[in-house]
């Protein structure tokens, strides 16, 4: 059996999750020029909240989803108001520090409430693999790929075909001009940041179903999201989404393929994100899909 189709499908699955997780990070960077080190933690907290309402409190799937969405909105507004906006116009170092602090606060709180052990959202029958030709895929994984396509398509429509999206693009391209024409930077940042947090929370829930969740997954996904964003160019949303799928592809191909009888141990899968970050930063810091604009 040829393993390549299976690897490609696996790459598509992880790429979908990375794309959902990283698009918010990229949107926020585009608008506020801040790196949110707590982005993966927002995802983790969203997943745990869903776990709390659906498994521990026994709400139905739809009710849990709506409650989690509501919670993600509140979380987004709160963290943006307290941890990011007061600092975003001062030195860039401040938001690096405050979002790092936020990430540790969220991780500590979740560890104290839920414990540090692995938790899982059980998918029941939806986790049974179905064989299509030689490729095994579960309904959950199909949902991951399908919903990522739908949500990212919706995001594309929002950004390129609505008045709201025009304002967001205007602010990222020329904040001064946009603000002088009456586009409110702070209102837009709340909207963009809330969308990003919602997508991240949804990605977190999918990870909870697909594999499992742990308080430390926050840092792991923050770094993955950074890798995807750096591949595509900081603040370039479509570059970031392309970067997410490239990251999924690199991770899955690198550990699945033989290189003349030698294959890379699976434990190194995660290290690829970091190596990609370093290599791209050192040789093409503007990302693969962006013309160099930012003065460094």
């Amino acid at each position: 059996m040829d393993i390549l189709p299976q690897l490609l499908v696996n790459a598509l699955i992880s790429g979908s999750i990375y794309a959902l997780a990283s698009s918010g990070l990229s949107l926020t960077y585009g608008l506020l020029r801040i790196l949110n080190f707590a982005h993966g933690h927002l995802m983790m907290v969203g997943a745990y909240f869903f776990f709390l309402v659906s498994v521990q409190l026994g709400f139905g799937l739809v009710a849990s989803g709506l409650l989690t969405a509501l919670f993600a909105f509140v979380l987004a507004a709160l963290t943006l108001r307290v941890f990011i906006l007061p600092f975003s116009r001062l030195s860039f170092m401040l938001t690096l520090v405050t979002t790092l602090a936020l990430s540790n606060i969220l991780e500590a709180l979740v560890s104290m409430i839920f414990g540090v052990n692995v938790k899982s959202l059980s998918a029941g029958a939806a986790a049974q693999s179905i064989a299509i030709y030689d490729v095994y895929i579960t309904p959950i994984q199909m949902l991951i790929i399908g919903s990522a396509l739908v949500l990212l398509g919706g995001l594309a429509y929002l950004i390129h075909h609505t008045a709201l999206g025009r304002r967001i693009r205007a602010l990222s391209e020329n904040p001064h001009a946009a603000e002088s024409l009456g586009v409110s930077r702070s209102v837009m940042s709340y909207i963009v940041y809330a969308i990003g947090t919602l997508l991240a929370a949804y990605a977190g829930i999918l990870v909870g179903y697909e594999t499992n969740m742990q308080p430390t997954m926050g840092s792991a996904y923050t770094i993955k999201a950074f890798a995807a964003m750096i591949l595509g160019g900081l603040g370039n949303i479509w570059g970031t989404i392309a970067g997410s799928f490239i990251l999924g592809l690199v991770e899955n191909l690198s550990i699945g393929l033989d290189f003349g009888g030698y294959s890379i141990p699976a434990g190194y899968k995660d290290a690829f994100a970091f190596v990609i970050i370093l290599v791209v930063l050192l040789f093409r810091p503007q990302g693969l899909f962006t013309a160099r604009r930012r003065e460094t």
Binding site: L96, V275, T296
Partner: peptide, 20 residues
Amino acid sequence: KLSHDYFAIGSLAFSAVVTA
């Protein structure tokens, strides 16, 4: 090669490689 926030990510990636 990198300045400001780019260096923050670069150094974070370096430390992540060491941990891995």
